[in-house]
Amino acid sequence: MKNKLLAGPYIAWMAIFTVVPLAMVAYFAFTTPDGDFTLSNFANASEYLPIFLRSIWYALAACVICLIVGYPVAYVIAHSGANVQRVLYLLVTLPMCMSFLLRTLALVALVRDTGIINSFLGLFGIGPLPLIRSSGSVIMGMVYNYLPYMIMPLYTVIVKLDPRLIEAAQDLGCDSVQCFRRVILPLSVPGIVSGITMVFVPAVSTFYISQKLGSTENMMVGDIIERQFKGVANQNLGAAMSLILMLLVFISIGLMNRFTDDDEEVATI
């Protein structure tokens, strides 16, 4: 009973700021502007299927790059001395102390045609390289913004790996590649899964990054939803699209969790 009381404030908080807004989103998604029940919002939202697919594709690409770049970083940090570890960990989290809007704007100032990099290259007659307004620059922006979310869970898992297991593998004749592939990697799967989730979820619903770093042909679902609410006041369509996006996110989290369960079994066998 006491424990339940302690959770009270959180439950109240969730009810007011999560459940109620969610119910409002659902209400708007299933009604016309006049408040009548309709499914047409979903029919209209389905016209934006190419944009949904594009958002998923960008988010997956960003996840894979974050994983490839982030894993070695997390591994190196986890295997450094205690003091170095603390400094490196701080450096990874440092960019998060700044608003992501500012970081994205700073990236724009770096890579745009009249930006810092192209102005510098221009001094040597190189130039302007097309560094901005492509799908590549949008994915780069997402990797840049979300990389810490990949490194941190990986680091937390890798740092807790039992060194005796690795020693045992070596004693039993694994070379370093086998040791990594058959012992370290399977054991870090929980970190990989939570890293992918933490990058994929914000990346697939991101907005602003694509507006600033992408061209008119790189819009993402988040941008479209933002516009429904801010500019043109078609809240009903925006709400339907938000619901679909939420569903997509839940499905992908579900799929990802399935991976962990399976792999944990493999790991324990």
Partner: peptide, 15 residues
């Protein structure tokens, strides 16, 4: 107004 807004959104979404 609504038709114009919807069409403009579709244009901007590249549809």
């Amino acid at each position: 107004t609504r038709l114009m807004e919807d069409l403009f959104n579709e244009v901007k979404a590249g549809l």
